[in-house]
Design a protein around this nucleic acid. Structure first.
Lengths: 178, 178
DNA sequence: AAGCTAAAGTTCGACACTAAAGAGTACACA
DNA sequence: TGTGTACTCTTTAGTGTCGAACTTTAGCTT
């Protein structure tokens, strides 16, 4: 009973033995994607820990920066994009408020709405993480030359378009985030 | 305050405005990866829900099948591969036992060790999920021809090698799962 | 206008995970 | 042979998230 994790190819070979109709080429791409994301998450997690930031807070920070000036979003919007319930969002914001990363104010146009804003501290924190992360990211892509990086980015973008632009009426197999 | 999620390119453009030294090519790849994984997770989650299976249970099932005959692993091994604490593993196994997906027995060679085994029910469940998932996966890659799929798989594998084979002494930037 | 319906966010109870402490076992070394 | 040390899994207390009920508001309908 070996303790070593099977390589991607070993994994797929066994899967195929269990389920003969499986397409190895598809399986390779899909499983490589999920393995990569897991490793990246761990790596990010370590960087974040050194900056006293949790992954939950980091996700919210990213969304607010991504929104651009004036760095404001509704809680419900952030929740949807992150795949969280509104309840979880409420608590995350609570925590981030005490850390001075965000502000919470009432929407003047709709009194039941709330506006989450990024503080300067929050923006600075985002920058600190990105500076550290970019080192890791560059390291991850080290073995690919510029052309390969571009090609990879292009292929991934096409996959992404397929899921992010998915229309519910187009067969319903690919469903969007809500 | 638009509710629409920024596209990948919009996201990177804004990031670059915030942090000028950022490499857009690298950022595109990394963010596409994480976006894709999120979408895939949602898609898998829906398939699993229709089969009365949680993502936690699914992860364990995958590891046991991946181990191959005789479908046995130590709890600690599974925990490490999934990035969980041993405590979480104990509880997951408890739940899966009541669902008849796995067995838990004492290791004859070491009485403090435990062996988790896959039941026929568990293997059947894995197969059911894979059958449903393969439809989604094929759909995801629909816009790529065979050559492109192969190329994508190869590029991703090279990235994966970089993180999974990472030696702690090679600079320490890329760290393995433990 | 008045009431109805839909929507946003918060509160509450249940559950899964983490960190840390604990119990039991194997192995190394004197 | 006895002791120390490392290792494996479980137990316990605290934290985060989910599902669901609830409050408040906006906008539609008649």
């Amino acid at each position: 009973m070996p303790d070593r994790q099977p390589t991607l190819d070993e994994q797929i070979a066994i899967y195929q033995r269990e389920y003969r109709d499986l397409d190895p080429q598809v399986e390779k791409v899909v499983n490589a994607l999920s393995r990569l994301d897991r490793r990246m998450s761990v790596a990010y997690g370590r960087q974040l820990a050194t900056l006293d930031l949790g992954n939950a807070e980091w996700e919210v920070l990213k969304e607010l920066v991504m929104a651009g000036e004036p760095y404001q979003l509704w809680p419900g919007t952030i929740a949807k994009r992150l795949g969280l319930t509104p309840a979880a969002m409420t608590h995350r914001i609570d925590r981030m408020l005490t850390q001075g990363l965000v502000t919470r104010e009432q929407d003047p146009d709709n009194r039941v709405r709330v506006i989450i804003g990024l503080t300067d501290t929050g923006r600075e924190k985002w920058l600190q993480v990105m500076r550290k992360a970019s080192v890791f990211e560059e390291d991850l892509l080290q073995d690919l030359n510029t052309e390969e990086r571009g090609h990879l980015g292009e292929l991934l973008t096409r996959l992404l378009r397929r899921v992010e632009d998915a229309q519910p009426d187009a067969g319903g197999r690919l469903t969007d985030l809500e």
